[in-house]
Structure formats: structure tokens, C-alpha cells
Design a protein around this nucleic acid. Sequence first.
DNA 1: CCTACCGATCGGTAGG
DNA 2: CCTACCGATCGGTAGG
Lengths: 199, 199
Amino acid sequence: MIDYSEMKGMKTSKRKLEILATAAKLFRENGYLATSVRDIAYSVGIEPSSLYNHISSKEQLLVEICFSCADQFMEGMTAISSSGDSPLTKIQKVIELHLRIAEENPTSITVFSDDWIHLPPDKRAEFVGKQKSYESAMREIVSEGINKGIFANISSAVAVKTIISALRWTHYRRKSLTKEEKIRQRGEISQLLLNGLCN
Amino acid sequence: MIDYSEMKGMKTSKRKLEILATAAKLFRENGYLATSVRDIAYSVGIEPSSLYNHISSKEQLLVEICFSCADQFMEGMTAISSSGDSPLTKIQKVIELHLRIAEENPTSITVFSDDWIHLPPDKRAEFVGKQKSYESAMREIVSEGINKGIFANISSAVAVKTIISALRWTHYRRKSLTKEEKIRQRGEISQLLLNGLCN
DNA sequence: CCTACCGATCGGTAGG
DNA sequence: CCTACCGATCGGTAGG
């Protein structure tokens, strides 16, 4: 039998991806701790012990799901920060980044939001570090906008916390939107937050 | 021995209140499922089985914590809705309501926000019903503001979801603020959200 | 990928 | 409020 998981260039087998997707779905429905490895295995259609041919632990699934989302946010923020756009355009792009990630990862984004607290201590610290770094980059943008007189002179920390928090509800949206609805909603959310931020 | 828990007019004994406060603190730190009845008992300073002289189940603690917050929100919203204030003032009062509840209940508000999903099915349905009713009342206010031309003409559902979500980060704030900081932060959050909402 | 099984821990009860 | 204890379930392993 060929062990596909060891093939070069094929880091995650189809089975592994299936397990990850199933776990994310169950974690979203019931939470990480309320989901047992038995739940995941039976949902995939194998015996619980067989899971361990593909994963090393239940925790590892949580780690992979959380960091997959975190990395998308970090990549997006890096691209936005290093662009030559105005602060206003940058914040608008941040808003679109959150909406896009929530749209493309409807299951894992909820796990990312709600279950990172259950990451093992070292990974949890790493995760919190990335979050802080993300918020710091966003505060930079807001401060730049304030200094240029584009944004109102409020605490950049409060502005960043409020805007990121405001976008979080889109993570829990269940139904997927039509293209028209997406554009309209993106416009309304941007309007609400950017109007509030600007002078 | 007098059973204080049965004394008229004394619905919750001091011990019960101590258990509730301890449970809320532990649920906040580690989550409801990750907190065992043993954790709660030892933190209170009694044996696990002794807890059951004061509570009927671990779930009951969650129910009491969640509904204590939910009822505060509902009461606040009812008072605001039935006041004769303008839509703008009403929304400002809603913002102040969230900030005040988060400030006064720093531990239970987190449990309310994050662990209601683990309520038993009937209580969970009741909880979700209250949330929907709360949002519906707030949509009424926003719609009134739009009709009067005070607020921008956006979907009231999107506006309400975004504003409530925006205020949620204050639930997780760890340090308590000085009176000055509170006033300043309330002003900044109100400015951001009300400016965004208004025409 | 399965059968068989493990020690640990869970929420909760009996009885005093 | 405690000692003693229960059945259920947990994540995970041995061995094939």
C-alpha cells in the first residue's frame, strides 16, 4: 500500500481534507469541546481509531483550522499596509478583506472566532500574538488617517477594536448571499463604518 | 438546622451567590464546558458533592448567568423603546446600555456572549427568542430614523447587526476604566457609530 | 482501516 | 457539608 501522506508535494491527502472539513463543520455547530473524536469519525464514516492514521490529535485539527484563517488575515493586512493607498482606501480594503474571508470560509471562520481559546498554550500564545500584530497594523492606518486630517481625532485603539468587532457578525451569517446582495451589504457596512470614522 | 434557602423573601443564599460568582469567573476564564463542577467546588472551598445542596445542576448555573444578562438588556431596551426620545437619542441610549451592562457585569457578560450555545435546548430557544426580540425592537428604532430622514437609507437589519456587533468588544475588556476614560470612550464609540448612521 | 481496550475524568447520587 | 461511589464518556493506543 502506498502511503499517500508521505508523497512529496502532497502534504494533505484527500481524506485529511475531508476530516478537516467535517471537523470544522461540527466544531461550528456544537463547539470544539462538545465535539468528540467519535463524532468526527462517524461523520466521516470511519471508526474513531482510524482517524489517527490521518491526524495526530483532536487539538491539531483546531490548530490547523484557526491558523488557516489567521494566516489569511495576516496576508491580507500585509498587502494592504504595503500598498500606496490612502488610509481611507486601506480601511475600506480591510473591511472587504473581512467580508471576503467570512464568505469564503463560512465554517472555519466561526471556529477561528470562538474556539481559539482552546488552542494548546503555545499555539494560543502564537495566535494571540498574531491578533495583536494585526490590530497594531490597523492602528497604524487609522493613525495615519487622523494625522492627515481625513479621520476624526479619536483613539486609534478604540476605533480599531470597534471596527473589527463590528465586522465579526458577518462570520456567523448562515445563508450565502447573491452577488447583488454582497455588493449592497458591503456598501452599507463600509458606509456605516467609514462615515463614522471620517471628519 | 434552619434551611435558609427556604426562608421567604430570601431566594438566593449567600453561598449560592458565591457559587454563581465563582462559576461565572471560571466560565469566563476557561469556557463553560472546560470548567468542571470540581473546579467550581474547590474554588469555593467545598467538596464537589456539597455544591448540590445549593444548585440542581451545572447547567442551571449557566442558565442563571445568561438570563440575568439577557433580562438586563431586555429591560433596558423596553425603557428606551417606550421613551419619547428621537431615534438618534434612542440609539445613543442603546449604546450606553451596552457599555453600562458590560461595565457592571464584567464576568457574566462574557459567559452570556460566548456560552449561551451550551444552554439546554428549551432554554437556548428561549434565549435566542429574546435576542431576536431585542434586535427587532432596535430595527424599529433604526427604521423610524430612516423614515424621518435622520439616518441614511440602509438596511435596518444590517445596521442593527453591525452596531450590536461593534459594541461586543467592550464585553471582553479586562481592565476597568476610570470615570474620565469611560466618558471619553463612550463618546468615541457613539461618535463612530452615530456619525456612520446619520445622513 | 478495524477490533479491542485503556486510564482519566466527567456530572451527579446515596447515605449519613 | 462530607465520604464513597456510580455509569458514561472522553482522547488516545496496541496490535493486526
